[in-house]
Design a protein around this nucleic acid. Structure first.
Lengths: 208, 208, 208, 208
DNA sequence: AATGAATGAGTATTCATTCAT
DNA sequence: AATGAATGAATACTCATTCAT
């Protein structure tokens, strides 16, 4: 059932996926019944099992890396292309690109990401492929960028993993706050403050 | 790990709680059956319902304000006292205290915290009391400390909420990485790097 | 005995209804388990709940206004038409018609009536609609007949409600005795005695 | 547990009986849980089973003929004494005595009678002894009275059973109406109308 | 006599899944 | 592809009853 380019999906099939995403995100996978999905999708319960052998396969089809490429095109391909393959004059410029790219991605894929974050803890099948995607695609690219600017003297000579961690924590914290806690705040402003904070914290000058 | 006046609990009652905590943490609340808890605890299924009217009440008793009386001393009372009412010579000193205090707390209450973090998204009963605890007890105290050191010229003149966010993001990211991703790393070392990063990032000097 | 548009019911559905009627009548609603009904009907327990959301809905579907559409033609519609709208030359003629009509009805719907009589005391949902049916449909029609024959001088000038009560008590007592206590007796003979008794008791001549 | 003269019952024991009577009457035997009785009685659940081996024994102790003598002293002994052993100048006088005696009895023992009427249909143990009580004690006495007044020419020469049936139906209908349907009506007045009706209906004069 | 914790069988109901149509 | 009736195992929860205290 993977490789389901949205165009190829029948009306009912699409409705099932939409209903499943909505309900899994809202109540969690285990607390969602196939009956509920069928009702919300306006199809017979049996129809779900025409398309997916099991309820779990439906979950996988929503949150699996294979699907992710289509449902979340940014994740691997464009994320790499847009973010890592660009040429940046400074880490600051890179950060800005990274942050906006991720912010947009989260905004557009919120329910699926929520499902993923909730369920990754309970389904071992999820953990490996995504962890690998991170370790083998994103982390090396990220490291390259960090090392590049460390060599240019822009960043502290900390282990790249540590710098990456500070970067991700700070940006994730900013996005998270904006989305969950304080939607009123001006995201651009907060993001610029975060970038300033990061650049100062990672600047080898003052102390390091 | 301790959650009710454990001394008053009967052997079986304690076993039920232990089994529930273990299983909820491992598989999630919705995916855990009372039958499973009973078996793991070595009691009859009915016994669970002598102590808790519903499965949800069992969850609440593990992760609720009632439990919070014993969990929260760290979170609110002693956290406030130890951390906020201590006199600190610098934000750095405060950060160090904060980080170790939180790290110890997480280490000791890991399964319950995991359950809480997983379930808070799905049970509205959880959201309000803890959000209020944060907003009304922890945030004001934290703000006081930040303002104090801003006035001493140690911290950037950003909104306190923003500084708090950077602080929590960085420390949480460090603890999270250590516990989930790379348990081999030397936590002290990582923490000191994080504190340096924070102090540099928040120092009003370099850029202002 | 017939209770829903039986033709539209599937084989299994019909079996469920039959089993439920039989068991509710025999043991009472509360003492009957859905497991028992399923076994007697030769279906899986889940099948019952495909057709009825709850056990109570099953009870209601047997003895409720919905069912009443099919049961009530006797009780209300055809009872009214046959019995009240017929033209009678005497109250005696009317009584005879009434008694046979009721007797036939009871004979044909005995188990459902037994369930109803047993359960009406415990389920408020039952009380109102049937009480209203009696008060708003049957009682006014009955009153009309009584007043008609009072005006003709055939009946005592008692309040119509009182005359109706004597009539119903006597006929009900006769039917009840025949069905429950002494099935050997000749119903026709007993009924004629009851009618004589009623006519004498209600005759304005002797005393009234 | 039978022969429990109320004086000998301990406080808790009495409370259990009261709670059981109240709840059985209200919800029916099968729908009442021992837990509920215990709570209402203010005792521990185990205490009920100190006094009664099973829930059914508790029911029997409330509605069994043995208890009936004490709980419902009228039923056998006084009923016979008061009603049947009296000397009456007319059937009318007897009817009046009978009706008031029964009315008082029902008023005073209403909940237990309700339980009995509800449960007699489902518990065969109940049926025989009470049926026998009726057939062997009440019916023969009643028959004697009827035959006595038939011989005096006051009553139609119908089978005594038939006359008894008319008598009971009419009086029961009057009492039932008063208690369940129209509590506003003047019972004395209704009863006198019923007696007139009965006397006219049973009078051998008019038709013979 | 009284308790109340404990039980295991039982309860109504829900579930993911199957299959004939 | 789609249905929806049917299933049997599982679910949370209740029950009457037991028993050590």
């Amino acid at each position: 059932m993977d490789n389901q380019e949205e165009k190829k999906l029948s009306e009912k099939h699409r409705k099932i996926l939409e209903a499943a995403i909505e309900t899994f995100a809202e109540k969690g996978y285990a607390a969602t019944s196939t009956n509920e999905i069928a009702k919300k999708a306006g199809v017979a319960e049996g129809t779900i099992f025409r398309h997916y052998k099991t309820k779990k396969e439906l979950l996988l089809s929503i949150v699996s890396p294979t699907v992710a490429k289509f449902v979340a095109p940014h994740l691997a391909k464009s994320f790499s292309k847009e973010v890592f393959e660009g040429e940046y004059n400074s880490y600051e410029e890179f950060l800005r690109k990274l942050a906006y790219n991720r912010y947009e991605f989260i905004k557009q894929n919120f329910p699926i990401l929520k499902i993923f974050i909730q369920e990754v803890a309970f389904h071992e099948e999820f953990q490996k492929p995504y962890f690998n995607l991170f370790r083998e695609v994103i982390l090396p690219n990220f490291t390259k960028v960090v090392v590049h600017f460390q060599e240019k003297g822009e960043l502290k000579k900390l282990p790249p993993d540590t710098i990456i961690r500070f970067t991700i924590s700070t940006i994730a914290g900013t996005i998270f706050t904006q989305r969950f806690l304080d939607q009123s705040q001006d995201f651009n402003e907060e993001l610029e403050a975060a970038i300033s904070f990061l650049m100062d914290g990672l600047n080898p000058g003052p102390r390091g």
